[in-house]
């Protein structure tokens, strides 16, 4: 289907954020052209695709290019992903065990922490519990496992389906999460998912927010704006604008991917790092003193650039709300 209806316009190549950082990457258009035309020398390299969806958004004929890229990966294996798959098999998380421990959470709103937040940024969860206590608080279901987004994006659909089956029984009704990747995957599995920012947005007037004096830039996570919807991003901006003394500056390429998704951090860490540096450089050029991202994968990767203080948006909020 993609091969027959591709216009060959090259728009996907123009917007692909990975193409400029990985000379070996064939780019999304290769799915329509090169793959079936006996590529010179080697198989198509698909591992630098962050599944950001910029190509899908730009395509004049709405080709599902990221889905096609995932299908291409189904029969391939990258050594960088083996650790993630073995983590999933061992303890149901896409990352190794970190600092997660069940804090006392007996609130009314169902909360899905996601692997990265639970194991690498547990302090965010503690802060969220306090922050949301005035409007119901959060509770985490016992026995949750990875949402399945990381294995799904590298083509291991059977692994993702198995994880989804475990979670499905636990996640009934509206589920809040702090990871857009989790939100998108769980949404695809039929779970009514919201970003926890949306809960905060609904109660922003009830919060006692400290005055700050700082210029911030907000990174737009791909799976938030293209997966969850730009409505959520609008709410993120509304929350930041409600913080007294905060000035928002905008980066040149507003919707550029940071390189943190699609398994690129595992398979092509050097490509992910180059993409993160580009993004952070743009934030610095815009005059930002702090870079915020409402996605734990983006935060992890942007921090690797090590050129500008970078925080999760929720982490920042919990630090300035009394």
């Amino acid at each position: 289907m993609i091969r027959n209806s591709c216009l060959k316009c090259g728009r996907c190549m123009e917007v692909c954020p990975a193409l400029v950082h990985d000379p070996g990457f064939n780019g999304p258009r290769a799915l329509a052209v090169d793959r079936s035309r006996r590529p010179w020398g080697s198989e198509l390299d698909t591992w630098s695709c962050t599944s950001c969806g910029a190509c899908v958004e730009a395509c004049p004929v709405c080709q599902p290019l990221t889905d096609a890229m995932r299908l291409m990966r189904q029969d391939l294996q990258d050594t960088g992903h083996l650790r993630m798959l073995s983590n999933l098999e061992a303890h149901g998380r896409s990352v190794s065990r970190g600092q997660w421990s069940m804090v006392n959470m007996e609130g009314t709103h169902l909360y899905f922490p996601g692997c990265m937040v639970a194991e690498r940024m547990p302090e965010t969860i503690g802060g969220l519990v306090t922050l949301t206590s005035g409007f119901g608080g959060l509770r985490v279901p016992d026995g949750w496992v990875c949402c399945g987004s990381p294995p799904h994006r590298i083509g291991k659909v059977d692994v993702a389906d198995e994880l989804a089956q475990t979670n499905r029984a636990l996640l009934q009704g509206t589920v809040y999460t702090s990871c857009p990747g989790c939100a998108e995957r769980l949404g695809e599995d039929g779970v009514d998912t919201r970003h926890v920012l949306e809960l905060i947005y609904d109660h922003i007037d009830e919060l006692d927010i400290q005055d700050t004096s700082i210029r911030v830039a907000l990174h737009h996570p791909c799976h938030m704006m293209r997966g969850m919807g730009r409505e959520v991003l609008d709410k993120a901006y509304a929350i930041i604008n409600a913080v007294p003394g905060t000035e928002v500056v905008h980066m040149r390429d507003r919707d550029r991917c940071c390189g943190g998704g699609g398994g690129v951090m595992s398979a092509r860490p050097e490509v992910a790092l180059r993409m993160a540096r580009e993004r952070v450089d743009q934030a610095v050029a815009a005059g930002a003193e702090l870079l915020l991202a409402p996605c734990p994968f983006c935060v992890m990767n942007l921090r690797r650039a090590d050129r500008l203080p970078t925080m999760g948006l929720l982490e920042w909020l919990t630090s300035i709300i009394a």
């Binding site: 060959k8 090259g10 728009r11 123009e14 079936s36 010179w40």
Partner: peptide
Amino acid sequence: ERYMRSLEGCGRLVREAVVPL
């Protein structure tokens, strides 16, 4: 595919150029 195969009947590698916008 059929057309590309027919073009490749010349025995050399045939590539479609990608155009810039």
